[in-house]
Structure formats: structure tokens, C-alpha cells
Write a protein that binds this DNA or RNA. Structure first.
Lengths: 341, 341
DNA sequence: CTGAAAGCGCTAACAC
DNA sequence: GTGTTAGCGCTTTCAG
């Protein structure tokens, strides 16, 4: 009898049948052992496991998934991996899914709805148990296919809006307003704003709008605004800050779309010998760990990034029956008042 | 005729048959359109695509994979997502795979071979086109199953050893030696070493061993060594540095297993008013972006993290035939001499 | 506790 | 260019 494993191609992987033959049981028994389903006598179980190990059998979940309509995969789409914010969320997702025996398959949308849409279709082709998407804004096609397939979607990061089924995140509107209140309280009245990713970061835009409204209502003015098309970084923050501060009319305080930009701003001020917060105050968003490495503690809004990932993944891991109508899980942010405001 | 989609369960997804019926073609034609295989007339193609969109059909790659023995998945195992080093590598992997139409499925090994082993079996159950693992050290079971299944494995980060099939990374031995040479050249003779993850970071261990050997050969001495079991962070670096520097016999220079620890060390020195590098020199590893946020530029070894991911993913993406015997792709590191040595 | 039969949704191979 | 047939490797269902 010719061996099936002569050519070492992917085609020649052993199957449950091969294991069954070696173990002297039926293929069905092998299936049960592999899945830990039903009662199998200790003896048989061991025989099967040994046979599997011997011939190098690996459970084939593709076949399993197609036959059982259920496979332990979760599709995850994040805007970028270059930003700690999302890798921390991803870490929470991965840890939690892993505990539940689920695996993340993922893609990066580069902050565009078009890429997200493509990814959603692609990920859906693996018949995942659920999807995790960032933000509440998605293309029509995404909404439609989600509706049509009935796949469960956890939308993360943002809660200011209506989720497709469930969302886990913070209120950016509230965060923007809180920071504005804090700065007004401190006596600042003329403000600058620095952002990046030119409008693609919808959460930052929400924060800013709430911030601006609150500032105006509080008698303040927004006198300078700079947005880069580039990704966030300290370098970008530094440049945009320089740009704002060399104008004749300087703001008392600058609100940054995130900590990276804010840290860059601080660097600019320090190297120019500008007094912070005396001459200009600085505020960021996120509360990233590296802030503690800076010579001055930057005022920022602390966000629970890892926890957002955990919450979303926990929901996805739960049996579908546990799914309630529409769930909005608001995690709390906290204003960290540092030495820059 | 009863509709198949009454209950909205995963079982009731439309199939190619349904699309075929709506489009008025055979199921095989739908298959061809979906895969972009063979020649299909423009007309038919559009009909099929419209029908698919209309009924919300999504290509089922589980079924495709099982029938075709080929599916665009790549298993990726990283030690952690809490460390920028690996998320940057992951970013390179993701970007590159995405371009090649492949998807990463991933797991986190927490720096242990046992977890890695479990993950490898788990990921293999999706019949991935390849695997990307960190480091050259793996359990016997991993080596065996890789051998038995014939799956292609790209080992990343390290090249000081024999890869199973291909490896992409830097020489940690060389990096350790280079840093030792630099410090000796600067005149330092008594050294401290600070690490974390207590021996689980095998690459750091390789650097340290090369470093220590070189130091001894150059007439230097290693007089203090501190290792934490915790994950790397500035806080850990700060504590261990304090610990070393409050001993009666203080080293001239401290080599840190990575930049986070080194930055923590710098913070300690600054807050104690210790002159760096006058009283103690500091050197890290990786060249992470946040170093430029620090008041003093830390001497470190720059590593091409994103590029390692790109190189590994590119290799995995290439057709298997292109696979040569054993490939070692050494990417270059660069000693960045800052203001701390 | 274990086995036999049927079929999951798709693609390879070949026909027309 | 498009259709037909025969499975891919597994799980479901039902027997025993």
C-alpha cells in the first residue's frame, strides 16, 4: 500500500481516518477525542492521542467549521498598529479571547472606511463567531452585510452614538468637555488645538467639537488650529506647536488630539525656553505610559485601553443567546491633572 | 418553498447555490467569479456579483480551504503585545501579508515555550500557509510537528542559531559585543546589568552573554546585576537602577536589556541629581521612538523591527517553490551613541 | 461509550 | 465560457 505522505505537500496531511486506523478505532471516535466531546474511555482516549502524536496529526478546523457551522475565530479590525492605543486594546482582546479558546484574525484599516469594508468582507469569509471594529462609523456596505449575515459586532473605543449591536469605549464628547472645563477653571481663555491624521480620527474630532463648544460657552476663544495629514508622533506635535507659537497671537493653552502630539509640544516649549504652563499650557489625551518619562507631567485624560479590549472580547466570547438588545458599555475616563496646566 | 433564512442563525447563511439560483447560472460559475478564476463574461460576472450583494452572500473560505488545500492564512506567535518591539514587527507583518492577500491569525506566548507549543498546534489547525514564530528556541514538540506537517516557518528577531527553515532578525551576540566595545572605548571599566522577564527573554540573554564576555576580555568587570521577573517597564528599570546605585561599590556604566529599562534608569539618575554619564553611563537596546522624548539621548542599539516583520512576511508570502534550503536573513543593527555614555 | 451514513459549502478536473 | 461530477475532512444524527 503506497504511503500517502511521500511528497510532503499540504495535500498529504494525515486525517482522522489515518489516526483511526493506527489507533484501531473508528474515525468518529477520533473526532470525539479531538474535540473532547462525549464520553470516551480513558484507554481509547490515550490510544487515539498517541496515534495522533505519532503520525503528526493536527486537528483540521476548516473541515470542522464547515461541518459544524461554528468555529472559534473572531475578526478584529483596528485603524493602525503604529499607535500604542490600539495595540493595548488588541492586547486585551487577545488575552481575553485566548482564555475563551478563541483566536483573533485581524486586519488594519489605516483609518479608512473603504479598507475597513474590504476587511470586513474578507474576515467574514472565515465565518467568525464575531467581529470587533473600531468606532461607530462604518460604511453602508458594512452595515448591510452585518445585518444580512447576522454576525455579532462589538464596536470599540467610542460610545457616543448608536451601536450596531454592542459598543465598548469611552465618551469622547465628555472627555473633550471635561478638559475644556478644567482649562477654563485654570483661567485660560485663548486656545490652540493640534491634531493629526487629518480628520480620519473620528474620535479625536468628537473630542475637539465638544471641547470647542464648551470653550466658547465658557467665554474662551479658539484662536489657532493645526492639523497634519501625517500619523501622530512627537515630531508632528513639535512642528505644529512651533507653528502655532510663532504666530503673533499666541494661545494660553493648547489642546492636543493625543499624548504623542502633546509630548512633542512640550519638547518644543522646553527647547525654546518657554515656561509651561506659565506661558503656554499643554493638555493631551490617553494617559500613555511614556508620559511618566517626561520631565514634566502632562495633563491628560486617562483612558482604559486594555479594559476596552477585555470588555469587547468578553462580550464576543459569551454565547450568542446572552446577547441583549443593544448594549452600550461606557468605561470611565479620568482627568489626570499634571504639571502642564 | 420555505425560506432558509428565517431563524438568522449561522446555519442559514446563503451559499453559492443560492447566488447561482438568483443569478441564473450554475454554482460553479459563482465559484469562478468569487475567486476571479478562469474567464467569465462581463455580463455574467456582474449578474453574479449583484446577486451576491443582494442576498448578502459572503465567500466561505473554510469550505474553499478544505476543498483546495490552500488558504490565505498565516499563523503568527509573538511573546507579548505589551512591548512596542513586537507590535512594530507585527505591523510590518500585517502590512506585508495584507498586500499579498494573506491574513494573520495570531497568539501571544507570554515568553514561554509551553504556550508557544499550544499555539502552534492551535494555529496549525487552520492549515495556514506558514507560521511566524519569535526566536530560534522552540520545544521539541514544536520542532517535530513542524517537521511532520512540513509547514514553512519564519523565525524572527534572532539569527544566532540554526533556523528550522528561515530566520529574519539581528545578531544579538554582535549587538552585545558592540555595546561592550563602545563602553570600553569610552573608558568605563566596571559595569552593571539590568534586565527583566527573568531569563525568559532569550535574545536579551544572548546579548548579555556576549556583552559580559567582551567586557571581561577587555579588562572590565561586571560588578552588579539585577533582574526582575516582571515585564519590562520604566518603573522596573528605575527601581533596579536605584538598587544598584545605592550599593557601596557603584559601576561606571549600566547596560540595560532594553530601552524601557534604560529610560527608567535615566529617570532615577536625574531625580537623584546624578550626573549622566559623568557618574554613571547608561546604554539600552532597540532605539525605540520614545527615546527622543527624553531630556538626554540614551545610547542604544537601533534595531529594524518593522523591517524584520516585512522580511519574514515577504518570505512567507512567496510561493513555496521559491523556498531555498535554509535561509538566514541578517538585518543590520546600528549603535546609536547618545549623550549617556 | 462507540460506529455508520449523510452531508456541510466549496473546488479540481474534466466535459461540452 | 460554462456546467457536471466527485470528493475535500470533518461533524451531525441516529443506531446500538
Amino acid at each position: 500500500m503506497a504511503t500517502r505522505r511521500s511528497s510532503k505537500s499540504r495535500k498529504d496531511q494525515p486525517t482522522m481516518h489515518d489516526v483511526a486506523r493506527v489507533a484501531g478505532v473508528s474515525q468518529m471516535t477520533v473526532s470525539r477525542v479531538m474535540r473532547g466531546a462525549g464520553y470516551i474511555s480513558r484507554n481509547v482516549r490515550e490510544q487515539v492521542n498517541n496515534a495522533a502524536r505519532e503520525i503528526g496529526y493536527v486537528h483540521n478546523r476548516l473541515a470542522g467549521g464547515i461541518a459544524a457551522y461554528d468555529n472559534p475565530l473572531v475578526g478584529v479590525v483596528v485603524p493602525t498598529l503604529q499607535n500604542r492605543v490600539f495595540t493595548e486594546v488588541l492586547s486585551g482582546i487577545s488575552d481575553t479571547l485566548s482564555t475563551a479558546g478563541l483566536r483573533p484574525v485581524f486586519g488594519v484599516s489605516e483609518y479608512t472606511q473603504e479598507a475597513e469594508e474590504e476587511l470586513v468582507f474578507d474576515l467574514l469569509s472565515w465565518r467568525p463567531r464575531g467581529l470587533i471594529l473600531a468606532g461607530l462609523e462604518h460604511s453602508e456596505a458594512v452595515r448591510r452585510i452585518v445585518e444580512q449575515t447576522g454576525v455579532r459586532v462589538a464596536e470599540i473605543m467610542d460610545i457616543d452614538g448608536e451601536p450596531m449591536s454592542a459598543c465598548f469605549g469611552v465618551s469622547h464628547t465628555e472627555a473633550g468637555r471635561d478638559m475644556a472645563s478644567h482649562l477654563l477653571e485654570r483661567g485660560y481663555r485663548s486656545f490652540g488645538y493640534v491634531a493629526s491624521q487629518a480628520g480620519h480620527d473620528l474620535r479625536a474630532t468628537k473630542r475637539f467639537e465638544a471641547f470647542a463648544t464648551c470653550i466658547r460657552e465658557g467665554g474662551g476663544q479658539l484662536i489657532a488650529q493645526r492639523t497634519s495629514t501625517e500619523a501622530s508622533s512627537m515630531v508632528v506635535g513639535r512642528h505644529l506647536t512651533q507653528d502655532i507659537l510663532t504666530q503673533p497671537d499666541r494661545p494660553d493653552a493648547i489642546y492636543y488630539a493625543n499624548d504623542d502630539l502633546a509630548a512633542g509640544g512640550l519638547m518644543h516649549c522646553m527647547s525654546e525656553g518657554l515656561d509651561v504652563p506659565g506661558e503656554v499650557a499643554i493638555a493631551g489625551f490617553n494617559g500613555l505610559g511614556f508620559l511618566s518619562a517626561l520631565p514634566l507631567k502632562i495633563t491628560t485624560t486617562q483612558t482604559p485601553r486594555y479594559e476596552i479590549g477585555v470588555a469587547a472580547a468578553t462580550w464576543i466570547s459569551a454565547p450568542p443567546e446572552a446577547q441583549t438588545e443593544k448594549l452600550t458599555d461606557k468605561l470611565e475616563t479620568k482627568l489626570h491633572i499634571g504639571e502642564t496646566t
